[in-house]
Write a protein that binds this DNA or RNA. Structure first.
Lengths: 156, 156
DNA sequence: ACAACTTTGCAACAAAGTTGCAAAACATTG
DNA sequence: CAATGTTTTGCAACTTTGTTGCAAAGTTGT
């Protein structure tokens, strides 16, 4: 089955992009990986394992999803966003991320209404002065509140 | 079995404090709740469900721990700290927290070596300017790196 | 198109969390 | 301090989430 007609061009571009991303991480290009990566590229924000399991309508094994996400994190394709519920959420990395080393110095925003997680790439993480003796490695900022969409036109 | 001799005085004070905290949340004062609250009061930083299960040497049901932690969060006695692994971590709230509404505007620090989570009460959360349309409710800042103890005298 | 390698899906397992319910513990009266 | 009503605990059973080993299927490079 093919993508809807009006997606045709985008879809072709995406195919190339996806292959490139996977190859640059030394990962072979398989149907599952393409599917999952497509979901991330199309997603507004972050995705959890559960989101992917649901959205990937075609049959795809739970275990494959676990392993794919692990591989993507390890290769610096996606990164984990801290959450307060027990669900791990993942979002696409930017170019600065590489194998084993993530450098996502941007702010994450979680909407209380639609529950979408945004990566606010344009906003830099503010610098915090730590007490004597503490050495900073990485800083994560998670803001929750109401996103632009839900403010204007409340969802649900 | 009683607490060690040199803890006797502290222990008595703590008893009162614990009862007060529980009563102020309309929770009856039970052995399990006292035990868990004691662990939090004595802890340097945050605790996970697993930490509590291990440290509570006396027999205590897994399920009781789940329910106690849920009750404490709901009553504003403890709050959840966002993490990137799948483990929920809890820390004591300050006075500004009340039932259903948490306001912990402080920075959390997670040590990469000893894995302790500190609540840096003294440090205020910096203000972040959000894109147009986004409304902030609460900001969480989690910094990881090397804590003062591990820097001076590496653990393990 | 073949051989070497990687990935997938299955089965079986392990860990983490939830729910209903009866027994025990707690709080509140007189 | 004892009786009573309410809350909490522990058990059993279950659901959800995540992991590991291994044979079959898919992918890559020549």
């Amino acid at each position: 089955m093919r993508a809807a007609a009006h997606f045709e061009k985008e879809y072709n571009n995406m195919e190339e992009l996806i292959s490139e991303i996977l190859k640059s991480g030394n990962l072979s290009v398989t149907a599952s990986r393409k599917k999952i990566l497509t979901l991330f590229l199309k997603a507004d924000g972050a995705l959890s394992h559960g989101d992917i399991e649901q959205e990937a309508d075609e049959k795809m094994d739970r275990i494959t999803i676990y392993r794919t996400l692990q591989a993507f994190v390890q290769k610096g394709i996606i990164h984990i966003i801290p959450t307060t519920d027990n669900s791990i959420r993942y979002a696409l990395c930017k170019d600065e991320c590489s194998e084993g080393h993530h450098h996502d110095q941007h702010v994450h925003f979680v909407c209380n209404k639609c529950n979408t997680t945004y990566c606010l790439e344009q906003i830099n993480v503010p610098h915090v002065k730590l007490p004597t003796g503490f050495i900073e490695d990485q800083t994560e900022v998670i803001i929750n509140g109401l996103c632009a969409k839900c403010k204007v036109q409340p969802v649900k």
